[in-house]
């Protein structure tokens, strides 16, 4: 399977979306809305839930599954208000000492006029800064597309995991191809050059773990993933220096 095959799989509509992960892994999820500034961004679903007896804060980018849902979710392209909602809930997580788990699946942050007017760049920048310093464990899981700054804005974490067929890239293969080869149809070649697969990310130590997709979407799959997340949170919590290590993790790149 080549890199572009993975891009196609990562984007395919049959895959479980962020909300499915939340509903399948956690119990007593209570969704919390809004950034307390301007609006509630449908592209980001967030709230409090329970995992293996622990209260946790969960944040997911949701692409939507039906046409109506996709419109409501803006196809998983978050606006500044989405990143600000996520940050608000991460600050609350810190206050109440809850670990944070994020599920990332986006082709990129929203490229719209309103997004620029309301500071898409500022919103992502603020998240990067605060997530580097957040005093609770953070685990980020890339479940589909990891589109550049829009993905990173929710993926500054102690552990970053990727599903076997997820991709994580600084630019879309199509965008890269149109710059590099002046032809967006050469996206498959560009995808190879960008080294955007989970295997690539692991080989550059940009992520800690690849999650096999055997049984993707089944109860067993989510149950195993939930146990892995809970176990990892306990490991991070045992380490008094985890925040320093998060700094060093990114400092090494």
């Amino acid at each position: 399977m080549n890199a572009y095959d993975k891009v196609r799989i990562a984007r395919s509509s049959g895959r479980p979306t962020g909300l499915v992960y939340i509903n399948s892994i956690f119990s007593s999820f209570i969704e919390l809305h809004g950034d307390r500034r301007a609006k509630d961004d449908g592209a980001i679903v967030a709230g409090i839930a329970e995992l293996d007896g622990m209260p946790v804060t969960v944040i997911a980018i949701e692409k939507g599954r039906t046409a109506a849902e996709r419109t409501m979710r803006n196809f998983g392209s978050a606006s500044p208000e989405g990143y600000r909602k996520a940050l608000r809930l991460m600050m609350e997580a810190e206050k109440f000492n809850r670990p944070v788990i994020t599920f990332v699946d986006t082709s990129g942050a929203f490229c719209g006029i309103e997004a620029e007017e309301r500071g898409e760049g500022e919103a992502i920048a603020r998240n990067l800064m605060e997530m580097m310093d957040l005093d609770v464990p953070i685990i980020s899981i890339l479940i589909g597309e990891g589109g550049s700054g829009g993905a990173l804005g929710l993926a500054v974490a102690d552990r970053v995991w990727m599903l076997e067929n997820a991709v994580y890239s600084v630019i879309s293969p199509e965008g890269c191809a149109s710059i590099l080869f002046k032809d967006s149809k050469k996206a498959p070649e560009a995808a190879e050059c960008l080294k955007l697969t989970a295997d690539d990310a692991l080989s550059f130590s940009l992520i800690e773990r690849i999650i096999p997709e055997e049984g993707l979407g089944t109860e067993e799959f989510f149950s195993a993933l939930g146990s892995a997340i809970a176990e990892e949170i306990r490991q991070i919590r045992k380490d008094a220096d985890f925040k320093e290590k998060r700094y060093k993790r990114f400092r090494a790149f």
């Binding site: 920048a125 990067l128 997530m131 580097m132 550049s148 700054g149 990173l152 500054v156 994580y168 890239s169 600084v170 960008l194 080294k195 955007l196 690539d200 990310a201 550059f204 940009l206 990114f250 790149f253």
Partner: peptide, 9 residues
């Protein structure tokens, strides 16, 4: 690639 993206963080 991603190494450039990580500079932001």
């Amino acid at each position: 690639g991603l190494i450039s993206l990580m500079q932001m963080a």
